[in-house]
Each structure stands twice: as structure tokens, then as C-alpha cells.
Design a protein around this nucleic acid. Structure first.
Lengths: 211, 211
DNA sequence: TTTTTACTCCGTCTTTAGTAGGAGGTATGT
DNA sequence: ACATACCTCCTACTAAAGACGGAGTAAAAA
């Protein structure tokens, strides 16, 4: 089952796409949203495998939503489904983390195929823009946590098990001040704003086994 | 591969048990410790499937360690391997979360079998005490998070995605004071001390998909 | 109807977390 | 000899989290 969320502010389009996708037995539409902001919340709660995202929406752009989703759920594939081809939009949204880029003129079969391919890690780009893209997006960004030192990794593991700074200090036999230094460095390197997000990061990236 | 940690303050016993267990190809001794306190840390970091735990240890009892492990990693099976049969000890340690209870007089084959059974969810209790136990430990404790209200669950999901109180307030369209109230109630109901532990709880119990 | 539960919000207080910047020690490699 | 990276600890500050107690509302259950 491929878990899917559809984000489009045009109700008719959204409902239509959904009802069609539902005819596919191995698709599971776990959520829908009518704005980028709603979309992010829905995606965070439902944690789908694939997101179908409209680029041009009234309140809250699909681009920002894509960026937010990509940051929070790097494994989640966002497929941009846009009304028209715009050179200005393509690259920013791909940089934002979009996985595939389709036009709404695509056939239903093409969209189904794109979802399946995305699920298996294969990108589909509209032919018109494909060649412009192929060159630039084969660099996978290095996992952020690879920047961490050994000690920082140890601290992160304790932190991600729910330990307070004082408890980490006790477990690693260092001062709480030192722990704070490490934590600050971890937060900076992982690009998160507090320890809870760092703990979430650790669990999402399986630095900690979750079950 | 069954991942195992051995905790025993008697070096000879510990080393002996380990070297025997290592002859089993499908066993992976991922850690060892010589005290309950060390044991907890090792288990949290290594996250084994099964823990062999001595009950009577000098510094830090196996009972407290068992309790700590069970709280942090409910899926981790702790097998108590004790020197003698003591009515006073059996029930507390089983209540603390021990999964099986063996005497050190057990044969190596019995221990191996107990590990394999524990891994597959089957409890082994020393015959002498088995009948006393069978009656009392078939109640599975209710998942703590079932006590949460709908709203609290929503808050927990946001929290476990790394949101601050203010961000939760914005997402749910309520005041930050209200969020604080909910968070306090969540912490109490989940029996944790801060939001990071609550986030960890949510990920461990799969209230949030972790990947 | 009364009671209970859930959700909302408030003020006050204490503790913890996190930032910023500096600083000394120890490796390690250039 | 020098530079770099890491680990350690420090002070001082600000912001956030959390505890505690109180309180109003609405809906559901007794």
C-alpha cells in the first residue's frame, strides 16, 4: 500500500484526483488538504509515502509547504502537480525538495505511474524541463549528522533517550556546562532549534532504534 | 540475529555466559555491563532484543535496572538470571518488568532456549515459582497513552514533531497557556518529566511513524 | 438535575534550556 | 613550529518550559 496525501486548493481537482487514485487498489489516500499550510500539518500527522502537491495555491504556496515537508520528513516524496510550465518555478521547487514534477495535462495513467515510481525512488520530470534538471540534482546532500563528532553523537543518543542535560552529564561523567556546549553544537549542526527536535531527528534518521 | 546484552557484576560468570552464547550463530552479544546502572546505559545505547540480568549485584540492583529498562524500552525482554530462589524477590522483579526468571543452576541449553523463547515473546519461569506467577501476570498493562484525550493526542503529535508550545498553539488555534496545560497533563499521564521524553515515548510507541 | 469530563485560559513561580563568547588542554597533521 | 579540530569548563544572559492552583464553559453521563 502506498500512502498518499493530496494537496490542492481547487476542490474539484483534488476530489477528482483522489477518487481516481482510489480506484487503484494499492493506493491509500490517507489525507487531503486545500492549502500549503494545511498540507504540511496533514503530512506531519499522516506521514504518507507520497504527496501530490499543487504549486500555485491561494493561501500558502506549495513551494513553502514542500520545503517544510522535506525538512521534517526527508523520506517523504513530494510530487509537484502544476498547471503550467514555468521556468521561474521549476528550479526553486526542486531545490526545495520536490521529487517529481508533472503538469496537470498529464494523463491519469502518467500520474499513477509517477506515484509508483516516486514510491520506489524514481523521479519523473516533465520532458520539457527534464534536460535542464538532470544535470544539477544528482548530488545527494550529506546526512547532517555525519558532521557530528563522536562525543556529540554520544550526547545526542542520551538526549534522544530523553535525558536532561544534568542526566547526560552524569552518564558521560562530564560537567553540565560541557553538555550544554555539545548540545548547542548538535543543534547547530542538525539545523534544529531545540533538543526535542534533535531527539525527533535522531529517531527519524534511525540513530536510535524506535521499536 | 538476536541482539543480547549481559549484565552481571561477577566477571567470571559474565564472561563465561557470553563466550558460551557466542557459540550460537544467531546470537549477537552487543554489550555487557557489570552493574545495574551501567547495564541501563548499555541497553539504552545498544537497544538489544534480550537482556540477561543478574538480580543480586553490588552497586545498583538488577531490579531497579530492570524497571528502568522496561520503562525506556518496553519491547526489550529482560531475563532474570539469579543465583537462588527467593520468594521475596520474584514478585517485585516481575512487577518491575522482567520477562523470564531463571536460576543459574539452569543448563546452558535452557538459557539458550529461554533467550530464543523470550525473543519470540514466550516467558520462561523457573518451575518452582511458575505456578505462583501464572495467575497474576496475564494482565497486560494498558498503554499509558490510552488515557490521553483526543486533544491531548493532537498536542502530543505536534510536540513529537518538534513543535514548541507557541507553534502548537498556532497550529491548533488555541492559546499557549492552554497548550501548557495540555502538555502538563500529557507528561503526567505518560509518566515522563519533560517534552523530549514525551516525544521519545510517542516515537517508541509508534504514535508517530519514525521513517 | 447534578456530576463529571474535557477544553479553554489566567497568573505566578522555579527550573531548565539555550545563546554568546572566551579559554585551556590535547591530540593530529602540515 | 604551527594550524586545526576536539573536548572540556567557565560566566552571564535570555527565553522557554513546566508546576501549581484557580476558574469558566459546554457537553455528556449518572
Amino acid at each position: 500500500m502506498i500512502r498518499i496525501v493530496v494537496v490542492d486548493d481547487h476542490d474539484v481537482v483534488r476530489k477528482g484526483v483522489i477518487s481516481y487514485l482510489e480506484t487503484e487498489e494499492h493506493f491509500d489516500i490517507v489525507g487531503e488538504a486545500s492549502s500549503g499550510h494545511e498540507g504540511v500539518i496533514t503530512v506531519l500527522n499522516k506521514r504518507p509515502d507520497v504527496v501530490l502537491m499543487d504549486l500555485m495555491m491561494e493561501n500558502g504556496s506549495g513551494m513553502e509547504a514542500t520545503k517544510a515537508i522535506k525538512e521534517a520528513l526527508p523520506e517523504c516524496k513530494v510530487i509537484i502537480l502544476t498547471s503550467y510550465y514555468d521556468d521561474e518555478q521549476v528550479f526553486p521547487v526542486l531545490e526545495a525538495g520536490a521529487f517529481s514534477y508533472l503538469l496537470k495535462t498529464a494523463s491519469a495513467e502518467e500520474i499513477v505511474a509517477a506515484i509508483e515510481k516516486a514510491y520506489h525512488g524514481e523521479t519523473v520530470i516533465e520532458p520539457k524541463v527534464a534536460h535542464k534538471v538532470m544535470t544539477r540534482f544528482h548530488r545527494k546532500d550529506p546526512e547532517l549528522h555525519e558532521q557530528l563528532t563522536e562525543r556529540e553523537r554520544e550526547v545526542l543518543i542520551c538526549l534522544a533517550n530523553g535525558a536532561s542535560n544534568q542526566e547526560i552529564a552524569d552518564q558521560l561523567f562530564i560537567g553540565i556546562k560541557t553538555v550544554k556546549t555539545h548540545v548547542s553544537n548538535i543543534l547547530r549542526k542538525l539545523d534544529v532549534h531545540d533538543r526535542t527536535q534533535a531527539a525527533v531527528y535522531a529517531h527519524r534518521h534511525q540513530l536510535i532504534k524506535s521499536s
